[in-house]
Design a protein around this nucleic acid. Structure first.
Length: 364
DNA sequence: TACTCGTGGTG
DNA sequence: TCACCAAGAGT
């Protein structure tokens, strides 16, 4: 294929059809100035880095409000480095993949204190930082510093799988896709090009019902040529997700405070707050078992209904027991919180679902 | 390498 | 309704 032609076609498309996003405010300037080169000035590595971390496995629409909040609260890497991890996790709550927030905070401290606030500019040096892998390193190199690199994400994998009609299923096809991607390096506008490729995948070369009639590459696309664009990329079937069962214990103190606890730093929902409960196992919990599992002696009563939540590799069904407590017992690291303090806590969506469920059935 | 790690939107 | 999907990284 003629790489130079493809590059020119995609950049032309990007100049008129590329998205304007909060972490691309330079594009707004470029487009309104009708500049040929949308690359006027990078938004800066901090903004590029922050957006790329948030965008890992997360949709643009979900990220935007979080990105705006973070930029407003911590406008540069030094302010973010000075924030407490608790504060960062509380602001990240609901965005998922919480290891990202912990790694991001660690990374900010390293850049602020050890690197004098200066982001590394090569993929190798960037990848040495926590939370930055091959994709994010390439994205920062290309977008923030306009140096030759191509970030290969799920969009790019899909676009190139179709362009070359790669029948090898993912993830085995990654190596071949990467080889094809290298043919676009170097090019005159590395930052714009890598974003153009992602925009094409997000708005035209979509997973389902791709708009091939709007694609600048339609004449070169091998998958489209055989009328099977939407069948690429091929993928290996995913294993079924098992159902797990858990019980949450909603303890209310006489003054109305609720017992919550912090999850361990590592693992699922690491460092986030939860309603105390049983482990999540493959077997349902019997009433008889729970008699020995309640965190303390009280008049526990079961709330009607249940909560369903879906994680990446298993589904979870939670039932809730509620009790009013006289003493100020707080076992295994739990702490009492009042409702008005909940907004400042790192509450993941699962915990919020349990809270909402309780509020439906009680007056709290 | 293959598994772990969230959540919300979509068809 | 539910399986699929997303600007992946760490281990």
């Amino acid at each position: 294929m003629d790489s130079e032609l493809l590059i020119a076609q995609l950049l032309r498309w990007y100049d008129s059809q590329g998205r304007i996003l909060p972490w691309r405010e330079n594009r707004e300037v470029a487009r309104s100035a009708k500049s040929r080169s949308a690359y006027l000035e990078s938004p800066g590595p901090y903004r590029v880095w922050l957006s790329e971390i948030m965008l890992q496995q997360t949709t643009v629409a979900t990220v935007i409000p979080y990105y705006n909040l973070f930029i407003k609260k911590w406008p540069n890497v030094h302010t973010l480095a000075r924030a407490s991890l608790d504060e960062v996790l509380a602001c990240w709550a609901g965005l998922g993949y919480y290891a990202r927030a912990r790694n991001m905070h660690r990374c900010a401290k390293i850049i602020s204190k050890k690197l004098n606030g200066k982001f590394p500019e090569t993929e190798m040096d960037l990848m040495a930082l926590p939370g930055i892998g091959s994709y994010t390193a390439a994205a920062i190199t290309a977008i923030a510093f306009n140096q030759p690199a191509i970030a290969i994400d799920a969009n790019v994998e899909r676009v190139l799988s179709r362009l070359h009609a790669i029948t090898e299923p993912l993830p085995k096809a990654k190596k071949m896709i990467s080889t094809h991607a290298q043919s676009f390096i170097p090019n005159p506008r590395p930052g714009d090009f890598t974003q153009a490729l992602m925009d094409l995948g997000a708005t035209v070369c979509k997973p389902r019902q791709p708009s091939c009639y709007n694609c600048p590459w339609v004449k070169s696309c091998k998958a489209e040529a055989i009328g099977e664009a939407d069948t690429f990329p091929r993928k290996l079937p995913k294993p079924a997700r098992p159902e797990r069962y858990g019980v949450a214990f909603w303890a209310v103190r006489r003054d109305g405070f609720i017992l919550l606890r912090r999850r361990p730093e590592k693992g699922l929902l690491g460092g986030m707050m939860e309603v105390p409960g049983t482990e999540w196992r493959l077997e349902e919990w019997s009433e008889h078992e729970l008699m020995e599992t309640f965190p303390f002696i009280a008049n526990w009563s079961r709330l009607p209904g249940s909560i369903s939540h879906s994680f990446t590799h298993f589904k979870l069904q939670i039932i809730v027991y509620i009790a009013h407590i006289d003493g100020r017992i707080a076992r295994n690291g739990g702490r009492w919180y009042k409702y008005s303090d909940f907004q400042n806590l790192a509450l993941p969506t699962l915990t919020n679902k349990i809270i909402r469920h309780v509020r439906e059935y009680t007056s709290y």
